[in-house]
Structures are given as C-alpha cells and as structure tokens.
Write a protein that binds this DNA or RNA. Structure first.
Lengths: 221, 221
DNA sequence: GTCTATATCCCGATAGAC
DNA sequence: GTCTATCGGGATATAGAC
C-alpha cells in the first residue's frame, strides 16, 4: 500500500520499518503457528524481524496487546468462514448445524488461531477490540436463530447461547485430546457437533423455563 | 501419617522433608489458588517450602509433571461433586441437568482447579494419570445416560459426549467472560447449562443419524 | 517518534558437591 | 535427597542516538 518499503537499512546499519506494527502481527501469527501460543514471546518476534526487544513496545503496551491484535485477526478469519455458511440457502436448522461443524473444524485446522482467541488468557475487559471482533459471528448465528424463534426473543437468546456453548465445548474437548488425535477424531467431533445442534433445536422448548415464558407473556399484555 | 516431621533442620543448616512430594502438591494448589495457573512457578513453590529450586526435580520431571499431579487432585474433588448428584434419587434427566449445573458452578467457584484441569496445557499423552482421574466422572454420566437409552449403546455414547461438551462449553465461555462477570453470570450460565441438558435429552433422537441407526439394527440381525 | 543499548529481575533446567 | 552454582531465555523499564 504505502510507497515506503516494509523494511530498509539505513547508512548506520539500523533497521527501519514502514509499518512495524503490521509486521509484528504477521510475525506473531507465524510464530504462534509454528510453536503454539504458549511459546510465543515478544523477544522471538523481535529477533525474527531484526529489531530490538524494545521496539515492539512503541506499538503495543505489552505482550498481551500484541496477542489481542492476533486474536482480532483470527476472529476475522473465523467470522468469514461462519458467515459463509450462515448465508447459504438452506433451512435455518441446517445452516446452524453447518456452523457448528465449521466451528469444530476451524478449531482443529487452525488451532494456533483458535488458541489465541480462547486459550491465550487475553483479558477482554482490557482489550475491547477482541470482544468487538466477535460481533459478526454472533450476528450470523442470531439471524438463523431468529428464523426459528420469530416471536420469542428470550427463546432465541437461550437457543443461541446453547448452540454456541455446545459447538465451543466440542471444539475445546477435541483440542484437549478427549476424542483422541488425528483426522478421525476431528471428523467425528465435527459431525457430533452438527447433530447436537439439530438435537438442541429439536428440544428447544426445554430451554426456557415456565417463569421466563410467563413473564414474557406478561410483557405482551 | 509418617512419624518423621514434615520438615526438619539438620546440623548443617539444610532442610529435609519427610514427604516433599506431597508438600509440593499442597503448596502448588495454594499458589495456583492465589495467583492462577498462569503465574504458577516451580521457583515460587520451592521458595515457599524453604527448599532450593532444584529440589522439586527429585520428585517431578518438570513443571508440567507437578501441574499434572495438581490436576489429578482437582479431578478427584470435581468427581466427588458430580458423583454426589449422579447418585441422587431422581429421574435420570434431572440428575444429568444437576450435573451440568454443577459442572459450570465448579468452573466458576474453583476456577484455579478447573483451569489446571483444562487450561494448563497438560499433555495427557505424557501424563496418563490425568486421563485416568477423569474416569469416575465419565462413569457417573454414563450410568445416567444408560437409563435413558437402555437399548442403544450408540445413542447413549452420542448423548454422553453431547451433554459433556455442552456443560464444558458453558463453563469455558463463562470463564472467558462471554456472559460477563460476577455471581449473576455464574447463576445464569449454570441454569442455562441445566436447561440445555434437558433440551438435548428431549431432542436426542437427532443425535444419531440414519446410517448409524441402520448399521446398529443390522448388527442385531 | 522510532529504534538501540543496556540493566534488572524471574523462571526452567542441569551439573556436581555433600 | 537436598544444596550451591550456573546457563539460557524472556519480560519490563529507562536513557539516549537519530
């Protein structure tokens, strides 16, 4: 984009980056992909870019801030995948099942990114950008759920959180090794997550208790 | 238990523990409870016990091995809670809902232990004790599920993994801050998890696809 | 404003003395 | 079985070159 090169050497042998911030995020993604979030370090990222260990602190307050930037990028990729399935021309229940399968598959196929989103210990209170980046995914699920519960916002909310929790649970336990390792485990967990979504939709009447239903009916009067 | 004191000083000013291994696990639990798994360190545990940083390596291969021992203890406590509800005299669906609520509540109220079990990055391949310690919980859930699917092992297995994944998902997202913080968020997530269990049980017919059902019927012939 | 150089502190892990 | 000593690495903070 910019006319300045991404990296150039000055006469004194020092390096200058046209956009060190973006380069740091790129390098962080690569490093996390190679070694996992747990072994991610600012020092190693700096080393790979040929800058000093202090340089990143001009662009990110601390290690967690750079991780948050990676999480935002990861959520963008994740959201694109989910949104694609949410826009398909199929019954809402089928679309939700497809999203559940994708959720689990993404966790397995893009584990470093998934870990950065959920297992890196990022405090979303201190990094609202991350929470903000989750919005498109929430919206995609909501639009499907609302087709199933057109007249009951409380039921729609309960259904949404349950579907999300179930997909997330299958993904987390898969990465934890509960279903074993290898492609078979991924396929199995992904299929189960899809069927679980259908089962929850089928039994969704049990998601809202009588008190909630009654208080909703009261608000209608 | 042992007649030797837990700690004694020799004439040379050195310390000896009657059971340093157990003392390390105790101190690790305390430290994790105070600062979280992320800030757990062998050095700090050693300091608190008044031993050198090298001493723990006589009892644990590395930091992760001590964490695994803590995870085993945590799973024992967790399992006791779940087993209590599984043995109650109530319909199986109600017992499973109660276990789901407990699962989420335990995650919130004993977060340090829960994190040690699931968010400490322990490789269960290298630490089979941890996997072994999960057995009682699996068994408790299975005994309830089997009452609901007495004649269909495949359906029982699908129901079990779905219920576990959903409870785990609610717990993980609660700790991630998705439902906010504070006692209200915990109560809300826990109730939702209970209702989700009931909804899954209600819609469980969708958990097993036609192919699976047919192949099961074939084995009966 | 961006980066270098440097210094401090903490951690994990190992080698060898006792 | 525990100690002392030590090595390598990483996080954080500051002073100063450009």
């Amino acid at each position: 984009m910019s006319p300045t090169p991404a990296e150039r050497r000055t006469g004194t042998g020092r390096y200058h980056h046209g956009d060190l911030r973006a380069a740091l995020v790129d390098a962080a993604v690569d490093l996390i992909a190679e070694r996992g979030v747990r072994d991610f370090s600012l020092a190693e990222v700096s080393r790979r870019l040929g800058v000093s260990v202090a340089a990143p602190y001009r662009h990110f307050a601390d290690r967690e801030a750079l991780l948050a930037a990676v999480a935002v990028r990861a959520l963008g990729i994740f959201g694109e995948m989910v949104t694609r399935d949410a826009a398909a021309t199929a019954p809402p229940a089928e679309r939700l099942a497809a999203m559940a399968r994708d959720y689990v598959r993404f966790a397995a196929e893009q584990r470093p990114l998934f870990d950065t989103m959920f297992a890196a210990g990022i405090d979303k209170t201190e990094h609202p950008e991350v929470h903000q980046a989750e919005q498109p995914i929430d919206t995609a699920i909501q639009s499907c759920v609302r087709e199933l519960c057109p007249d009951d916002p409380a039921a729609a909310a309960a259904l949404e959180s349950t579907l999300t929790a179930t997909a997330h649970g299958f993904a987390a336990l898969l990465l934890d090794g509960t279903y074993g390792t290898g492609p078979d485990a991924v396929r199995e967990a992904s299929q189960q997550a899809g069927r679980a979504a259908l089962a929850i939709i089928e039994g969704r009447a049990a998601l809202v208790d009588l008190y909630t239903v009654r208080s909703y009916l009261v608000t209608l009067c």
